[in-house]
């Protein structure tokens, strides 16, 4: 079972495992042949079967990936909030609907909205890998609204991008 500690895997910049202490926010994107990926962080719920495949895809693109288990409040406190305090950068993930709902609400205060939301009724490595690739591709393009919301207790692949102006 995945521990509730954040483990930053991959990330072209070679991010080490980050403990629960205040984690340094990952830099925005990682250098990939001189170019930073638009995505600043890829979050995934380690309890979703095959979700670590997403981490490998993200790592391959130089995007830091972080696993969490259960409480989205932990990666919020340690990773996402520090990132967005600095700048409203895109974040993607594969989580359950409840975690996405929380991040969507928190994202509002930073002017980010959910621009891609793909329900994953059948999880598993191949499906998850494809979803992760789709998110990475979408993050590089202009924000688009591809909402296919499924029931909130199913895994969902999502992308939060800055599309509005807000206070922070």
């Amino acid at each position: 079972m995945i521990s509730r500690r954040q483990v930053l895997v991959g990330g072209g910049g070679g991010l080490a495992a980050a403990g629960l202490g205040p984690a340094a926010p990952p830099a925005r994107g990682r250098e990939m042949g001189g170019r930073a990926h638009a995505l600043a962080l890829f979050l995934y719920d380690g309890a979703i079967p095959g979700a670590d495949a997403a981490a490998r895809v993200a790592a391959g693109a130089g995007v830091p990936a972080a696993a969490f288990g259960g409480d989205i409040g932990v990666p919020w406190l340690e990773l996402v909030a520090p990132l967005w305090r600095a700048a409203p950068v895109p974040v993607a993930g594969i989580t359950d609907g409840g975690a996405l709902f929380c991040l969507e609400q928190l994202a509002r205060g930073h002017g980010l909205c959910c621009t891609v939301r793909l329900a994953l009724p059948v999880a598993g490595a191949a499906r998850i890998e494809a979803a992760a690739r789709a998110l990475l591709g979408a993050a590089e393009g202009a924000p688009l609204r591809r909402d296919s919301a499924g029931p909130a207790n199913l895994p969902v692949a999502w992308l939060l991008q800055p599309i509005a102006r807000n206070v922070r």
Partner: peptide
């Protein structure tokens, strides 16, 4: 300790 676990509960 602040948390967001209350949203872990499935909606259905």
């Amino acid at each position: 300790i602040p948390s967001l676990s209350v949203f872990n509960f499935g909606i259905r």
